[in-house]
């Protein structure tokens, strides 16, 4: 049975698209057939992060409006054979996404895929609502910063009251916290909320902590999901998060500042 995962946050710029791309790629790397859908109608970006922007012919809205078949719109990733991308439309019509249309597309995807990752737009408007409505599980992306934490708590409220599972009194959407852009050095200095602080406030289980890393910017520049980078802490942290999602036990890494050796210090590294 296919599982629908929404990657959401409320606030913009916290790493939803980066996380959707790497999470979906991670599931695909583990052998699961995975589709990742960009719900940000009008502000398509997942295609760029995944490096397939020039291969977009049809999009989610085309499929919903019966202008294209799902198979014509799905883009197969060139690196991972199990990964498919369904891009958002660049239309400015906000009402292009309809609840019935989204449901139809998801049902069709469910027949073929193991996991369907929905990359939510920022905010709590239509696109964000439709991205989370059908979710079985939610990955809530949070930065250790006041506005992000507050907004994610609002999203948790919406998941608990407005999702399909909530409406149907089914088992609630399973929530996971993914803390991104984490700087252990700043946490040690007392200038950044720690993992424990955020967990205490939000009270949902921790899926992973992604350290702030130059690799994230470099990967999006190159159009490669960061999880595919070698020798990168962010990539390792995403792989751990995916493993935990799949039920494996992995110790949390990269929560302490890196100890600089004498040699590195002398070189100013």
């Amino acid at each position: 049975m296919a599982e629908i995962i929404v990657v959401t946050s409320g606030k913009g710029g916290v790493g939803k698209t980066t996380s959707s791309a790497s999470f979906a790629a991670g599931l695909a790397m583990r052998g699961h057939k995975t589709a990742v859908i960009d719900f940000d109608v009008g502000l398509r970006n997942l295609d760029l992060v995944l490096g397939c922007e020039r291969r977009v012919v049809y999009d989610l809205v085309n499929v919903i409006q019966d202008e294209a078949k799902l198979h014509q719109a799905l883009i197969r990733d060139k690196r991972l054979e199990n990964l498919y991308i369904l891009p958002a439309s660049q239309t400015r019509d906000k009402d292009a996404l309809t609840p019935e249309g989204v449901e139809r597309v998801l049902n069709e995807l469910k027949e073929e895929f193991d996991y369907i990752v929905c990359d939510s737009p920022a905010g709590i408007e239509r696109g964000a609502f439709l991205a989370l409505y059908h979710a079985d599980q939610a990955v809530v992306v949070v930065n250790p910063e006041v506005s992000s934490v507050r907004d994610s708590d609002r999203i948790l409220g919406i998941l608990a009251s407005k999702s399909k599972r909530a409406e149907e009194n089914a088992e609630p959407v399973k929530e996971h916290l993914l803390l991104t852009r984490y700087c252990p050095e700043k946490v040690e200095k007392g200038d950044m909320l720690s993992v424990d602080d955020v967990l205490e406030i939000l009270g949902i289980p921790l899926l992973g902590v992604i350290p702030e890393s130059e690799a994230v910017l470099q990967s999006s520049n190159a159009g490669v999901p960061v999880i595919l980078q070698e020798n990168s802490q962010a990539a390792e942290a995403y792989k751990d998060a995916v493993a935990r999602y799949l039920g494996e036990e992995r110790e949390m890494r990269f929560l302490q500042p890196e100890k600089k050796g004498l040699f590195k210090r002398l070189l100013g590294g």
């Binding site: 910063e145 006041v146 934490v149 507050r150 708590d153 609002r154 409220g157 009251s161 946490v187 040690e188 200095k189 007392g190 200038d191 950044m192 909320l193 720690s194 602080d197 205490e200 406030i201 939000l202």
Partner: peptide, 26 residues
């Protein structure tokens, strides 16, 4: 002595209050 400058502590306190308040309203 490692002494945290404490802005994170302030952030945590403020968040605790506002989140509790918004949850009650929700």
């Amino acid at each position: 002595r490692k002494k945290p400058s404490g802005s994170a502590q302030t952030a945590k306190e403020r968040l605790r209050i506002i989140v509790a308040q918004e949850r009650a309203q929700r």
